[in-house]
Amino acid sequence: MLHVKDPIGANLDRPLAGEDFRAAERFLYTEARLLDAENYTGWIALVDEDIRYWMPGMETRRRDDKRGPYAYGEMAYFDDTYAELKVRVARYNEPSAWADNPATRHAHIITNIEAYETNDPTLVAVFSCFTNVRNRNEKDQDVIHGRREDVLRRHGAGFRLALRRIFTVHNVLLSKNLNTFL
C-alpha cells in the first residue's frame, strides 16, 4: 500500500500510452476546470474515499542536512483524509465564507504531465507541475508554483484521485491564505 510520505511508485520504464495516457491527462484537466469554477462538490466526487492529500511546509535547509526541505509528520498546509477534505469543502459551500464571497477568480494551470504504471495494476502514478493563480476584489493576486505527484485509481473508464503529494517552490507562502485545492 502506498503511503503519502513515500514516492508514488512510478515505473519509469512503463509509461502510459495512447488513450490510457490521455485519460489520465484528461482527469487532471477536468479536476482543474472544476476547481477553477469553485465546484468543490464536483471536485470531491473525483476523490477516492481512501485519499491522502499532503502539502508539506517547505524549509530552506543546507544540502547536507539529512532532514531535507520537508519531513512527514511535521507542519504542513494539508495532510488530509477524505473526511478532512470534506470539512474544507463544507466551508466553501457556506455563504459566509468571506474569503470566497465575493468569489475568488481561479486559474489552475497544469503542465508537464507524465503518467506511469505502478506495481499495482489498479493504480497509476502521475507527475505534473502547476501554476495556481488566484485573483479577487480589484487586484489581490496570489500565484503559487509547484509540482505534484499523484496516484490515480482506475475507476470504470476513468480515474479517482487516490493520493497527492504537493511540493511548492515557496518557502514563505506569498499569500494570506490558501483558499483552493492544488
Binding site: A97, K176, N179
Partner: peptide, 27 residues
Amino acid sequence: KELYRRGTMMTFSPGGVFEMDDGENWE
C-alpha cells in the same frame, strides 16, 4: 499530538477553515 497537528492545520493555518477568513479583514 498528531490530532493537534492536524487540527491546527485544519483551523489555524493558511488553508485552515478559520484563519482563511481572517487575513482579508486585516488587509
